[in-house]
Amino acid sequence: MQWNNASEFFAMGGYGFYVWGSFGLCTLAMIAEPLLVCQRRKRAIKQIQNQLN
């Protein structure tokens, strides 16, 4: 382990902006995508139910 404390970890040896900018957007995107698919699925199910009733 190369980090002595949390602030050193977040600073990433001066590359914090670049490293966290990469990992941050990746994480956000990979949370958002399945949520959007869930929404689309709910919409599709609603539509079928409306059609049936």
């Binding site: 040896g13 590359y15 670049y18 490293v19």
Partner: peptide, 9 residues
């Protein structure tokens, strides 16, 4: 340095 860690994604 630590900048290379971007490689992992």
């Amino acid at each position: 340095g630590e900048g290379y860690r971007i490689i992992f994604i």
